[in-house]
């Protein structure tokens, strides 16, 4: 069993934290973790499996847990909330670091639309005006 704590930042923007553990049993690694962040507004957090094998996400009957798509977990995490994440994989635990990496943390919005990066790129270049002289 190994206890892991991962903090990650993407694009120098916002951070999220996963705290969890891995247990290996009969050649299967079980990962359990909680995800949280310290922003004041809800964030969409994406996590990726770092272990070298397929993700076996939780299933209920025929339905796979909706947060998982192709080895990537994505969900809204509210302020002061710690959300549980769990999955299994045939890959062994990593010797260095946790099984989950934080891919991105972005502010949760109610709908899609243009990405902030595209909007920022469309704005006029900023440069200090020439009359802003040292005083």
């Amino acid at each position: 069993m190994n206890f892991i704590r991962e903090r990650a930042a993407k694009d120098g923007m916002q951070e999220a934290e996963t705290i969890g553990e891995t247990v290996e049993r009969n050649g299967v690694t079980f990962v359990t973790a909680t995800v949280s962040h310290d922003r004041g507004t809800p964030q969409v957090v994406r996590l990726a499996n770092r272990l070298d094998g397929p993700v076996w996400p939780p299933r209920l009957g025929d339905e796979t847990a909706p947060a998982w798509t192709d080895g990537t977990w994505e969900a809204r995490v509210g302020p002061d909330q710690a959300l549980g994440v769990g999955y299994a994989t045939p890959a062994p635990p990593l010797a260095d670091g946790g099984p989950l990496s934080v891919v991105s943390v972005t502010r949760a919005t109610r709908d899609g639309g243009t990405s902030p990066e595209a909007v920022l790129a469309s704005l006029d270049d900023w440069s200090p005006p020439s009359d802003a002289l040292d005083r």
């Binding site: 120098g12 923007m13 916002q14 310290d38 900023w126 440069s127 200090p128 040292d134 005083r135």
Partner: peptide, 23 residues
């Protein structure tokens, strides 16, 4: 009020700086 200071500033660092202060 320093023009050189303003020119050397990397705007993309601003969101992270604000967030650290907010935290």
């Amino acid at each position: 009020r320093s023009l050189a200071g303003a020119r050397a500033a990397d705007l993309t660092e601003l969101p992270k700086a604000l967030e650290l202060v907010d935290r």
